[in-house]
Structures are given as structure tokens and as C-alpha cells.
């Protein structure tokens, strides 16, 4: 039965992809050609695949993190803010410790700092929900904006890099090359972050499906009353799940800086390429929050993102098109999640 549903979801995702490809028409590109070119650019060569894996890394980490509170139907839309704070914490820690400690310790400490930073940033909305019933969708989102401005300020203030000062482009000092995550494929710069990402996916597949913690989150998501009857401390589990989610989002930020960018730059939302906190939402949702399926969905959506960069360069199709595609895929995958779409429709028509 699960397989049938899985196939149904994939089917509707493909339809969503086809529908969203209609937007290519605005650029006088036939939708199917555009789609073919997009997919070819994302998955068509070994270089493209490696580039896609590079983008997959933070995306996969982020989506795995989001799937934890999502399982309890706690909608953490604040992944982006948590990622940014993770980046800040990791970069600051890395830069501060680099002169004194060997690289493995610097990396470990930075990752720890990123986890703590991201988790801490996830706490205010969570506590507001638990204590006052404040809608977490709104509060987590608001925290994103605050994080964006905080980062922006830090990069022209306390964390401003010496190079950046000269050229008046806000950025931090770079992480010393020796403290970066080891590269698996140096030509495209694919870092060991992908291993961390896969390990996290495996770990959380196990946690969500085979532990009391995962079971309890599921019960909370399905029915608060049942959770109470089952003796589940729902507030505590939500708090834990959000700490994990924020922490993992922070790690995604750390991996981004220590695996790819090396420096910290401002992140206004107009730049989708670094908005993994948002992109992670469709990645997690179209995979029905199953961490193993998230490996596939993150790779798939990363490829589209990658392909879209090439489309932008080749045909001036703006990168924004990926958000449209993600939204449409999310919409159609929802239709796939609904048990029997046609039955639902028939019942309604009656």
C-alpha cells in the first residue's frame, strides 16, 4: 500500500514539474525543451551530478532537521534563521579558535557552536507556542527576518573582514583553508559534508521510525489528546524536536561555510541560492517526512536548483523560477498524498 502511494506521489510530482515548466513560455522557450535543458544541466553529466551533490549537502541536512518537528505537526518555517545563526556561530568560533587548535578540533567546535546557535534561535518561538499558544508558523518566520538583519549588521560591524572593509562589500574573514571540511572531490569542491548529511538522514530515519522519541512525535502530530492519554510530555518533546531541528539547521549553515563558501556574506531573501531554510520545506514535505526519501528529494530539488543556474546564464531565465517549481511540485505532491484523489473528487461532486 505504501508503494502505491509512493508511486502516486512521484506521479503527481512529475505532473507538478510539467505544469511549472509552463513558465518557460514567458521566455519563449518551449516547456519541454526548457525542462529537458533544466534536467540536463542538473543531472546530465558527471560534473553536473557532482555539482548537484554539492548543493544537496546543506539541503539534505536542513530537510532532515525540519522533518523532526514536522512529524509532530509543529511547523518550523524558521530553518533559514536557524541556519544563519548556525553560520554566524560556526564562523565566529572557527575564526577565533583557528590560531590555537588543530583543524579537527576547530571543525568539531565550530559544528558544536553551530548546533547550539541554531537550537537557541529555535527556542523563543517554541517557548512562545508552549506557554502562550502563539502560532509557530508566524513566529519562526519572524525570527528569520531578525536573523537576516542581525547577520547583515555583524558583517559591517564586529565580524567585518579586513578584505571586505577595503572593497565595501560586507563579508567576514575567510575560514583558513586548512580548517575547511576535507574535500572528497576537489575539482568541484564537494566536501565531506555530504557524508555528514547522509549519516544524519540515516540516523533520523532510525530515530523517527524505530524509537520511542519518534513514535511520540508521531502521536503528538496525530492527536494531542491521544498523546496525553499515552503519557507523552508533548511540550517537552516539541521543545526537544525544535532544539534538534534548529541545531541541525545550524549544522547545515556550518557545512555551507566550512564546505563551500568559506566566508560569511549577507543573506537577503532575494538570493534563493542560499535560502536552504526555505527550500528545505518542500524537500521535506514532498518526501512525506521520511528521511530516506528526503535523500532522494533533496538530490532531485538540488539538481533543479543547479540546472536553474545554468538556465539563468544561458537564457536569462531568473533563478526565481526554482521557487515556482518547488511550490508547484509541493502543491501537486499534496494531491498525491491524498489517499485516492479521484475518490475524493467523486465524493465531492456527489
Amino acid at each position: 500500500m505504501n508503494y502505491i502511494k509512493g508511486i502516486q506521489i512521484v506521479f503527481f510530482i512529475i505532473i507538478g514539474l510539467l505544469v511549472s515548466s509552463l513558465s518557460f513560455l514567458m521566455f519563449h522557450i518551449s516547456p519541454l525543451n526548457g525542462l529537458a535543458s533544466l534536467i540536463d544541466s542538473g543531472f546530465g553529466s558527471s560534473i553536473a551530478l557532482l555539482e548537484t551533490l554539492k548543493v544537496t549537502t546543506p539541503l539534505l541536512i536542513m530537510a532532515v532537521g525540519l522533518s523532526v518537528p514536522f512529524t509532530a505537526k509543529f511547523w518550523n518555517i524558521g530553518g533559514q534563521g536557524q541556519l544563519i545563526i548556525g553560520e554566524i556561530a560556526a564562523t565566529a568560533t572557527g575564526l577565533a579558535l583557528s590560531p590555537y587548535l588543530p583543524p579537527p578540533l576547530v571543525i568539531t567546535a565550530s559544528m558544536g557552536a553551530a548546533f547550539v546557535g541554531g537550537a537557541a534561535w529555535a527556542m523563543p518561538p517554541t517557548i512562545m507556542k508552549i506557554k502562550f499558544g502563539a502560532n509557530e508558523i508566524i513566529t519562526t518566520l519572524m525570527m528569520n527576518f531578525v536573523a537576516v538583519y542581525l547577520l547583515d549588521y555583524l558583517l559591517i560591524g564586529p565580524m567585518e573582514g579586513s578584505q571586505a572593509k577595503l572593497v565595501h562589500a560586507p563579508a567576514s574573514n575567510p575560514i583558513p583553508a586548512s580548517d575547511m571540511l576535507p574535500k572528497l572531490v576537489s575539482t568541484v569542491g564537494l566536501s565531506a559534508g555530504i557524508i555528514i548529511a547522509l549519516a544524519l538522514a540515516g540516523l533520523f530515519y532510525f530515530i523517527l521510525n524505530y524509537t520511542n522519541f519518534g513514535y511520540e512525535l508521531r502521536v503528538i502530530g496525530e492527536s494531542r489528546n491521544a498523546a496525553k492519554y499515552a503519557g507523552i510530555k508533548a511540550d517537552r518533546r516539541i521543545l526537544e524536536s525544535m532544539a534538534i531541528s534548529g541545531g541541525i539547521a545550524g549544522i547545515a549553515g556550518m557545512v555551507l561555510v566550512f564546505g563551500t563558501t568559506q566566508i560569511l556574506i549577507p543573506q537577503f531573501f532575494s538570493d534563493i541560492s542560499t535560502a536552504y531554510g526555505y527550500v528545505g520545506i518542500p524537500v521535506a514535505l514532498i518526501a512525506s517526512l521520511n528521511p530516506l526519501a528526503i535523500i532522494a528529494s533533496s538530490f532531485f530539488l538540488a539538481g533543479i536548483l543547479n540546472g536553474a543556474y545554468i538556465m539563468e546564464a544561458l537564457y536569462s531565465v531568473p533563478i526565481d523560477v526554482v521557487i515556482t517549481i518547488y511550490g508547484t511540485i509541493m502543491l501537486f505532491s499534496m494531491i498525491g498524498v491524498i489517499g485516492d484523489v479521484f475518490k475524493a473528487l467523486r465524493r465531492w461532486i456527489k
Partner: peptide, 19 residues
């Protein structure tokens, strides 16, 4: 989920149309 999807579509599509 549906609202979030629409938010994404509008977010991206508005930029695409502009471009």
C-alpha cells in the same frame, strides 16, 4: 502545506514574470 506551496509559487513566479 497548501498555503506554503502558494507562498512559494507567488514568491518565485512574481520574480519570473518581472524578469
Amino acid at each position: 502545506v497548501s498555503g506554503t506551496a502558494l507562498w512559494f509559487i507567488g514568491w518565485g513566479l512574481s520574480g519570473v514574470i518581472y524578469a
